[in-house]
Design a protein around this nucleic acid. Sequence first.
DNA 1: GTCTATAACGAGATAGAC
DNA 2: GTCTATCTCGTTATAGAC
Lengths: 186, 186
Amino acid sequence: MREQILVSAQRLVQQRGFNGFSYADIADEVGIRKASLHHHFPTKTDLGLALIDAYTTQLQSGLRHIGESFNNPADQLRAYVAIYRGSLDAGRMCMGGMLASDALTIDPVMLPGLKGFFACNIEWLTEVLAVGNSQRIFALSGSASDHARMLLAALQGALLIARTTEDIEAFERTTSLLITDILRKG
Amino acid sequence: MREQILVSAQRLVQQRGFNGFSYADIADEVGIRKASLHHHFPTKTDLGLALIDAYTTQLQSGLRHIGESFNNPADQLRAYVAIYRGSLDAGRMCMGGMLASDALTIDPVMLPGLKGFFACNIEWLTEVLAVGNSQRIFALSGSASDHARMLLAALQGALLIARTTEDIEAFERTTSLLITDILRKG
DNA sequence: GTCTATAACGAGATAGAC
DNA sequence: GTCTATCTCGTTATAGAC
């Protein structure tokens, strides 16, 4: 049940933000009463902390899987971008981006976990970009970590705008451009 | 008074999102009672529509000013980026980005105005990039409109992440990289 | 245009029975 | 672990006096 609650709540946060859903929404979805939810997560902050933790674990698991599935840094980067594309197709934003936009309204105890999530993304991207650059697969114009931050920012923003403008095609073109600009020409 | 309300509400949306403030917050700030606000904006949706309209007007005015102040497309682009930097310094997000993250929870009648705001940004950026490219000041790897969308997405995402990670330095490096990647290399 | 007063609702949360 | 019942608070919104 705890797992069902987390699955439901995660979807709600990704689609509506942390202030955009209530215990009543979750209760309807998982089929128990509001009050019963408080047995699993006494406060909404407790739920939020568990969500960030679970989401970061999902990310790390996904990144590990990419590392095991692809040797080529370019393919790894494309697989990373595909995660965002899959999210868009499901009508979901990145939970990190949604919580970031709610940063001033949520309990501050959630912020370290949120920062950790972004750090996870940046560290992994930095490593992939650095390896690709040293293998002359990529041709970075700046440091690997600067490119990593730029990629993360661009993907978060592209996801946000694409959902609102309902333009998946534009998302696709943006991410293609991001990748080709990193790949060594000719 | 209507103007004071809009100023207050705009700041609140940019910092806390459309669901992150109430009429009580505005009332405290402008010094009238909650009920009096409904005389100026009967519903919160009415307020939201007025905010989007005012914000788009501010954008257009700002873009016009940039066009009048700088002839060089590179300087125009830097001035555009500086708008986001100024927002970050004020602890504010772009209102467009905030409303986009709230897209599924706000009254759908606000969505056309929100899409129009993004279209405004993309059209202006596309024009600046196209001119700079034809003047051989820029060296675009893709179409001007694709680069425009990418820039907008990257700036929105960078703003969001920089506020959460409290890393203005990272925002600065990201935007520098975005601009240098567009400029024709020495 | 602004006020007091209040309605109507939904939110997060608690108590205690089963 | 789940339930019913309830509490308290904040929210948007309205009625009607001044």
